[in-house]
Design a protein around this nucleic acid. Structure first.
Lengths: 206, 206
DNA sequence: GTATCGGCCAAACGTATGTTTGAAACGTTT
DNA sequence: AAACGTTTCAAACATACGTTTGGCCGATAC
């Protein structure tokens, strides 16, 4: 049929496996096997493995960035912006813009971490190309929230924050393992992400 | 001769290439070719590619952790510790404990980022096993510096900080590229790492 | 009913990888 | 100088990968 779900199945499988083992360590065979489709389907529908990687990002990032952009535009009309509120909005959107499970958000942050740590040049360029505008919009709004921080430093600190977030959500399980071992406490992922907010706010203020 | 420098040449080449392209994407042939040694030398001297990866980490981490441990012990004897000072010591040690070039430190942080983002389970286990003690010592000292932050939250925030540092130093070049493009300013790596300190301190305090 | 077309499939292709092999080269010891 | 253990080397090995191929199926159009 013309309305096959093969494409979606491949994207679902690829998303999970890429996040779990990285891009290079995940073979097309592992993806198609998990998706229950034929090996050749990837090259048929996407053209290449590289194109599949981009497609995975696009499927997640496009809805998120649209939602964020709308929210930002809404906030811009309300004059002065509060720092906590701005990050709160972004965080809630990142974790919940895909309706169902925050699990997908975690998966996606793991992906982002790998996109940055591995110098997949084509990927970085692609991300900047397509989603750079929203980021700049966010930065501009942030500048009005903390006018006392020089723009350049602010830019850097946002980057630092991004690192903290991505790194944390990337290694969530290992973080939980360690905290259980060293503190004998079970920590929910929600608790950890919740702790992230005051850290970021404190860091941005300096 | 029995004191060949082949091992060192391999480690040097592997360190650079792993940081540049990741573990999986770097072939033994690329490493041995850069090192100017025979392909079989890696398996002869290290046993396997996986063992080579561990050896790269060990060569860097062991001197650093020894130096850090000594410094921490020294600080423990001096009673109350200042937050800025504690992180300053760690940072100066991380960037300069290898005498010569801070370039090596950057390379190594890129490696660390990949060690975390990619779930190289054996690597994470190895690192925790061998260097976990120093980390706990650091954490204990940190607790005396900011007694107002509950231990569990402090632990998380240290992890967040680690994320910011690793993420930043991992993507240093791309960060410089972006800042040049968006702000028309050249930023030195030293400047960026310098900005990192107030961010971390602010974040830890919350 | 048959032609057409997009999607699917098993199988094969070429290539790159980590590893192993067996002999040559070298330094040291006897 | 002969024997030995260690290091180096070119070559081959087995395997896993991304990609391509050519035929098959099923639905839609004529």
């Amino acid at each position: 049929m013309s309305q096959s779900d093969t494409v979606e199945r491949i994207l679902d499988a690829a998303e999970v496996l890429f996040a779990q083992k990285g891009f290079a360590e995940t073979s097309l065979r592992a993806i198609t096997s998990r998706a229950g489709v034929n090996l050749a389907a990837v090259n048929y529908h996407f053209g290449s493995k590289e194109a599949l990687i981009q497609a995975v990002f696009e499927r997640y990032l496009t809805p998120f960035c649209l939602a964020l952009d709308a929210k930002l535009q809404e906030l811009e009309g309300q004059g002065a912006v509060d720092l906590e509120k701005l990050f709160g909005v972004a965080s809630r959107l990142a974790l919940g813009s895909h309706g169902d499970e925050p699990r997908r958000a975690m998966i996606f942050f793991r992906l982002s971490g790998q996109a940055y740590s591995q110098p997949q040049d084509h990927l970085r360029a692609y991300l900047r190309e397509h989603y750079g505008a929203v980021f700049r919009r966010f930065l501009a709004l942030l500048r009005t929230a903390v006018p006392e921080v020089p723009p350049m430093e602010l830019f850097l600190r946002v980057h630092f924050s991004l690192g903290a977030v991505i790194f944390t959500l990337s290694g969530m399980e290992s973080l939980q393992t360690i905290s259980k071992k060293d503190f004998n406490t079970d920590v929910t992922a929600a608790r950890i992400t919740q702790q992230l907010l005051p850290f970021v706010v404190g860091g941005i203020r300096g």
